[in-house]
């Protein structure tokens, strides 16, 4: 897993609520057997017009957002299917943080296991971030995982929650499977006891 410590980035606004994983990456892109190439399908139906050309109104297609690593979304981001292709596609495009007021459980877990940081903020902060991205699309925010802070362009610091375990794994880029495998003896003992 890629490690995550901090970043400074512009914000890509996606004001839709309940963005489901079918929008993040439609099923027609799920026939791959590896994790690469999925960025091509990221938000496919919103990003492209019917004839396949880029939709100029969609932020991912706009010049000012190229290179941005932070996606700001409406409530309940990532609902629907369990496809881990969703965080793979987001990260493939270059997004390393998603900010919302809430995340669907499976998406959140999938994101954390890939080094994609889901940040939950209050509705107030969400609104001010949307306002900011409209008024000053090139303004940047700082995100620091170590201190669990999001710093707005005016210096306002917002702290966010993350469980200690996920935080350590993300900071150090540790694959959680290693932790599980270290418990091999306990798993074997559990199996033994039930047999």
């Amino acid at each position: 897993m890629k490690s995550f410590t901090k970043l400074t980035s512009k914000i890509i606004p996606l004001p839709n609520t309940d963005v489901d994983t079918d929008q993040i990456i439609p099923a027609r892109y799920l026939k791959v057997i590896d994790k690469s190439g999925l960025a091509e399908g990221l938000f496919d139906s919103w990003r492209r017009l019917e004839d396949g050309s880029p939709n100029p109104d969609f932020p991912l297609n706009q010049d000012e957002y190229q290179g941005a690593q932070v996606l700001l979304a409406g409530d309940n981001f990532g609902c629907g299917s369990s496809r881990e292709h969703a965080p793979w596609a987001l990260m493939g495009w270059g997004i390393n943080v998603v900010i919302s007021t809430s995340f669907a459980d499976i998406f959140r877990g999938n994101a954390l296991k890939n080094g994609l940081l889901p940040i939950v903020v209050s509705e107030e902060i969400q609104t001010s971030l949307f306002d900011l991205s409209e008024e000053a699309p090139t303004a940047t925010v700082d995100i620091n995982l170590e201190t669990q802070t999001l710093t707005l362009p005016d210096g306002t610091q917002v702290s966010f929650e993350i469980d200690t375990f996920s935080k350590t794994c993300m900071l150090e880029g540790i694959d959680q499977l290693g932790y599980l495998l270290k418990h091999d003896e306990q798993i074997a003992a559990f199996e033994e006891a039930r047999a």
Binding site: S81, S82, R83, E84, I106, K113, Q176, L177, L180, E191
Partner: peptide, 18 residues
């Protein structure tokens, strides 16, 4: 419950989940 692909790997390898 549903799990992501990383967790599929976890369960395949350890028959357990975090």
């Amino acid at each position: 419950f549903g799990i992501g692909t990383s967790e599929v790997e976890h369960v395949l390898a350890s028959q357990s989940l975090l």
